[in-house]
């Protein structure tokens, strides 16, 4: 698996876990899952993009 696929898998697992840990009913869980999943994936992409000018030596 490439790194992005692993990132998405990890974000998926984390989002499902916290949606069920912190939210009581299905609609709340779905909304929370979407927010956390999007934040993790998009956040990682943005961070990766910001680090682009600073490659590892």
């Amino acid at each position: 698996m490439d790194h992005f696929a692993l990132l998405v898998l990890q974000a998926l697992l984390i989002a499902v876990f916290f949606a069920f840990l912190w939210k009581e009913d299905a609609p709340q869980r779905l909304r929370y899952f979407g927010k956390v999943f999007a934040a993790l994936v998009l956040g990682a992409i943005v961070l990766g993009w910001l680090m682009l000018p600073f490659p590892r030596p």
Binding site: L6, L9, Q10, L13, V16, F17, F20, L21
Partner: peptide, 16 residues
């Protein structure tokens, strides 16, 4: 339901 979801999530994460 929560038990099942938590068990699956943790097991998948561990196996991966």
């Amino acid at each position: 339901l929560r038990a099942l979801v938590f068990a699956v999530v943790i097991l998948v994460s561990f196996i991966v």
